[in-house]
Design a protein around this nucleic acid. Sequence first.
DNA 1: AATATATGGGCCC
DNA 2: TGGGCCCCCTATAT
Length: 574
Amino acid sequence: MGPTTRARFVYNRRRRAVEEASDDEEEQHDTSSSSDEEEEEAEEASGEEVDDEEEAAAAEPGAKKPPAAAAAGERRGGRKDPITISLKKVCKVCKRTGHEAGFKGAVYIDCPMKPCFLCKMPGHTTLTCPHRIAMEHGVIPAPRRNTNTSLDYVFQSQVKGKISMVKPQFLIPNQLDCGNVKFHQRRVTCLEFHPARNNVLLSGDKKGLLGIWDYVKLHEKITYDSVHSCILNSMKIDTANDGVLYTASSDGTASSTDLDTGIGSPLLNLNPNGWNGPSTWRMIYGMDLNTDKGLLLVADSFGFLYLLDRRSKTRIGHPILIHKKGSKVTCLHCNPAQPEVLLSSGNDHYARIWDTRNLVPNSPLASLAHGRVVNSGYFSPHSGNKILTTCQDNRIRVWDYIFGNLESPSREIVHSHDFSRHLTPFKAEWDPKDYTETVAVIGRYISENYNGVALHPIDFIDTSSGKLLAEVMDPDITTISPVNKLHPQDDILATGSSRSIFIWKPKNEADLIEERTKQKAKKYIYGSGSRKKSNGKHDNSSDDDSDGDSDGKNKKAKRTRFTHTVKGKGKSKV
DNA sequence: AATATATGGGCCC
DNA sequence: TGGGCCCCCTATAT
């Protein structure tokens, strides 16, 4: 309704007009009296190319202004050109003139005719989105970042300098540890750390290839291409027998594979009659293991849940409809504290809680309504009392009490993780090491101008406050990183970005000390004039994270960092 | 260096 | 309820 619909309408009509007529004719056809259209046309008449360049210059403070007018003059005045009008620049999104969507340098300029790409509300673009606000900190690990109590401050100021190796509670793995691992031929779709074998990471890709590799000894890697024939969607190691891996795939099978031999045996095949067109082909996205009961749970792209006995490899009962018939179940997760409690997420815009001991179709324990497709839903890793969902409406939702009032989420965090058919869906995941059950990690879709390069960071979010704890990026990774996995014990992050896999570790102590020393020296030389004073409480502390970056990567004075905002319970729904 | 293409989900009729 | 059309920050192969 409202502005969105109107924009769409205008867009379609405009398109037809552009296709059918030249610009001049178009004006005659145009009977609209919409005020903003008139405004745009006026802008056009005054010379759109100059406007464009000004826009670019404004977006990048340090950038030189190119001699746009001169260039335009040459183009126009040089010689006769009968088809000049058709060369007029047109926005690739809405096909209108007067503006252009796309990258201007490292900054993406949205089409103003569309709702905001970040928060999805009309009337502004991501550049001016209220959910994109300036942050005070940079990307270096800030151990105390999320502990702001005065007690903590006192503790830090007294203890710091006396003991050098206090392990911070949250160490952000933000430095690339090893080279770009690129043995997958298609995009990486899932990652899993081996829970018991040191330094072993399992990876799956769009073609169904399974990779097992040691990220300390990079040459020790194995790939199996016989397990699945297309997208590997989910992996799980059997904790009772950690030599066995369970996998689920869009080929419609769930398998158990011996990690050492690669010999797999299918536990379930939902397409026993082979390919008979997309309307009958079943795919498996959601999968989880109830280790207590030796139960493998799997859900297909038609809304059905299947229970499998792990040992006998047989189905238990009949498939049960847990989401809208014909819609994809995107994710399954067993509650870590009560494994019989199951969380399912689906394309029908719901996440649902079930009791697997008493499954009745259309009778979940709870139904969590979302604005769009729910990519994932996970119980918090220890108490299992919270739920974290990722939805294609660009919002991460936190539901604090799984048996409480789930009519609306406790918090909504606007965050850019749009759907794109070419990307593996983004999924926010809890940090399994975080006993406070607050930290989550998720890749970011929209890019940030990072010293002139557009990069897509991986965000660490404090889900209790919505605060961005860290944004992890590297100039060498220019691709989007939708797949991220935190190590269950170590401060390690594995990232799947396009065909590559990256391992991140925290910067080591020596690097940190060096950085802080430099920072201090800088401060001494240049003073603190450029520093933003917070509340004066501790603006003398060297480990203040207010302007974290000192590694020379962020030289530009002002960076407007994308972040996200939190909507608490009780406020109006989006 | 331009271009083709894979292919999911929303939305409209 | 289903088919057809549209699509915005891809990444890669040619």
